[in-house]
Design a protein around this nucleic acid. Structure first.
Length: 634
RNA sequence: GCUGAUGUAGCUCAGUCGGUAGAGCACCUCAUUGGUAAUGAGGAGGUAGGCAGUUCGAAUCUGCUCAUCAGCUCCA
């Protein structure tokens, strides 16, 4: 039969294993191969190929290889756990991004203290080097087997499969598990592993179901790769915005206000610079700005649909005996602002921005530093437009968001969420709005993940996701197309025909929330903010008391130009002052000794490149100003 | 909200068997006036997250509660 093996055309006997194909093709590949796919389907190295096919053999460097090794890792862990805690019932144990997990139901409550024992047993299983063997059973026999094994979760899984399905199992020594596979050939491959954490997880991801115990772990082909991964995690922890926020005195969340962040003077500098940038950008792109109240009466929220669909996340209050709500979103206020007068089609598209403070009652367990809070400021805007204007406005918003992320050097991915089950509009509106967003993505050639039913109750959305320091992604920007609110609020404009027409609207944010964005930014730059955002742009460090006056003069000149400077005039040695400024991640340090004081120069040190030598104050200021104006970052 | 873990000085942490707390950094004072990541000496700083309980005695054991961390669910 004819096989295209990793792009090479080759000839093999029917029934050859991908493993043997690799062996014949390339000894290097044979040594490092972990898995294989046949015609794009991941089936491993040990399922014979009996027809002409494209076979790709994967190493650990490939997704398929990683997935396969880690999947076997989860079986080895499950086997170890079954040996140590025999009454444990197994649920599911897939490979994930950086490792694998297994969901377990056990009378034993697993804690990290159990890890060494489990790891020891896993090492033993690796040493036993058990063959991992696949077998298939018809559905009824498979059911009988898992019933006999007393694995209720597996029974449930099989019961959901179609009658005629043939069900695959993998067996290694005394351990057998229902599993689609594939796996590596033997447990001896699972050598360099580590159990990471235990957590609860609902059976089948549904909070109405029983909560199982999930053990996270990882496995790598070599000791070095495992160590490198663990080191990288350690490094990433140092970038955690919660830690840096405290160390750099930017922001904090106190026990007295869970989910309600405080911003300190240095954090406020960053926040204000972001807002200045935002305002300028939006002015340039034809946006106006408004501010709507934080508290509005309850009736408004009935009209908007929030009462029916968002009540659980809202805070309420009473004023003069009347019911009021604290806004969880800015749109109803924006609707009222639009309705203040009649508009003409000539006024559209109307782009109205608002840095709006919203409050949402998030579940306590969901709170996470600045990333997930209970009050935050959205850099919101509502665009009111005619239907014809939809494509160009969506495209413009996507470009705007892209340009914002480019300024910071962010990579991001895009997701399209379609209307949810509780969507409040008609089927036509659902189709029109979903198509408009899909068309916009496709016209731009943007690759996206599809999330069916994840949109807002009033419409579908395109989300922009940014990564945090340990690879978790957070939704920041979003573009939502909405036919609903204009309907509910009876928004109109006068068309060229003199008749009233209904506008369509876009809800959109670029930062998402200023708080979350600052959290992501802090981790992205590891606290070393570019000069335009840095709370202190230059720190002036006199070497002795003799140069204090000159240092203060320099600071005065710079501050007069709007630069953010501090003078460290403590009687400490220069090395100590530098160390401290360096730890504060101040972009520039100006060392002022007798020499500089006499010449009227400054000795410049950059936090990144160290000593830059001596230059005139004017030259340094021009350089710094240039860096600020271009929003340059490392 | 759910599962598990954690909570000692501003920060990072130690504290054995239950006998009312200790270090480093930071802070303050004094001396030192120094050239690119830590000068030295001294001082101040804590109702042990909170509330109960057990005990002659609780940071330590128990219960409840609050907060945080990891994950699930949910979301900007």
């Amino acid at each position: 039969m004819k096989i295209i093996l990793n792009g090479m055309e080759m000839e093999f006997e029917k029934g050859t294993l991908p493993l043997d194909m690799a062996k014949a093709a390339d000894p290097e590949l044979y040594k490092s191969c972990v898995s294989a796919s046949v015609d794009g389907k991941l089936t491993g190295l040990y399922q014979p190929v009996d027809h002409d096919a494209r076979v790709d053999v994967w190493t650990f460097a490939d997704d398929g290889g990683r997935k396969t090794l880690r999947h076997t890792g989860s079986h080895v862990m499950a086997q170890a756990i079954k040996r140590l805690f025999p009454d444990t019932k197994l649920a599911i144990g897939p490979a994930i991004e950086n490792g694998f997990y297994y969901d377990l139901d056990s009378s034993h409550v697993f804690t990290e203290e159990d890890f060494p024992a489990i790891e020891k047993e896993m090492a033993k299983i690796a040493k036993e080097n058990l063959r991992v063997e696949r077998f298939e059973l018809p559905r009824d026999e498979a059911l009988a087997l898992v019933r006999e094994m007393d694995e209720p979760y597996k029974v449930e899984l099989i019961e959901d499969l179609p009658e005629e399905a043939h069900i695959s199992f993998y067996k290694q020594g005394e351990f057998t598990d229902l599993c689609a596979g594939p796996h590596v050939g033997s447990t001896g491959k699972i050598k360099h592993f580590k159990l990471m954490s235990v957590a609860g997880a609902y059976w089948r991801g549904d909070e109405k179901n029983k909560m199982l115990q999930r053990i996270y772990a990882t496995v790598f082909p070599t000791k070095e790769e495992l160590k490198e991964y663990l080191d990288r995690l350690e490094e990433a922890k140092k970038r955690d915005h919660r830690k840096l926020g405290r160390e750099l005195d930017l922001f904090a969340i106190m026990d007295e206000g869970p989910g309600f962040p405080f911003f300190f003077p240095k954090g406020m500098v960053i926040r204000n610079e972001l807002e200045n940038y935002w305002r300028q950008l939006h002015r340039e792109n034809g946006y106006e700005e408004i501010k709507t109240p934080i508290i509005l009466n309850e009736e408004l929220w009935h009209r908007s649909g929030h009462w029916d669909h968002y009540k659980n996340n809202m805070y309420f209050t009473k004023i003069d005996g009347e019911d009021y709500a604290i806004k969880p979103m800015n749109c109803p206020g924006g609707m009222l602002a639009y309705k203040r007068r009649l508009w003409s089609y000539k006024d559209l598209p109307m782009r109205v921005g608002e840095l709006g403070l919203v409050h949402r009652h998030e579940l306590s367990g969901a709170l996470h530093g600045l990333m997930r809070v209970r009050c935050f400021t959205q850099d919101d805007a509502h665009i009111f437009m005619t239907e014809e204007q939809i494509p160009s406005e969506i495209a413009a918003v996507m470009d705007l968001i892209d340009s914002v992320y480019k300024v910071f050097g962010f990579k991001y991915h895009v997701e399209l969420s379609t209307c949810p089950e509780n969507f409040i509009g008609t089927d036509e509106m659902r189709a029109a709005s979903e198509n408009a967003l899909r068309d916009a993505l496709e016209a731009k050639g943007v690759r996206y993940v599809l999330n069916p039913g994840d949109g807002a109750f009033y419409g579908p959305k395109i989300d922009f996701h940014l990564e945090d320091s340990i690879g978790r992604t957070w939704q920041c920007g979003t573009v939502q197309l909405d036919y609903q609110m204009p309907e509910r609020f009876d928004l109109t404009y006068a068309g060229a025909d003199g008749e009233k027409h209904r506008p369509v609207m876009i809800h959109r944010v670029a930062f998402g929330s200023i708080e979350r964005f600052i959290g992501i930014l802090t981790e992205h730059f590891a606290g070393a903010f570019p000069a335009w955002l840095a709370p202190v742009q230059a720190k002036i460090l006199p070497i002795t008391d003799r140069t204090h006056d000159v240092a203060n003069q320099i600071a005065g000149v710079m501050a007069a130009e709007g630069l953010r400077v501090e003078v460290d005039d403590r009687s400490e040695k220069i090395g100590y002052k530098i160390r401290q400024a360096q730890m504060e991640k101040v972009p520039y340090m100006l060392v002022i000794g007798d020499k500089e004081a006499e010449d009227g120069t400054v000795a410049v040190r950059s936090r990144k490149d160290g000593d830059l030598g001596t230059m005139t104050l004017e030259d340094f200021m021009a350089k710094l100003q240039e860096e600020i104006d271009t929003k340059a970052h490392d």
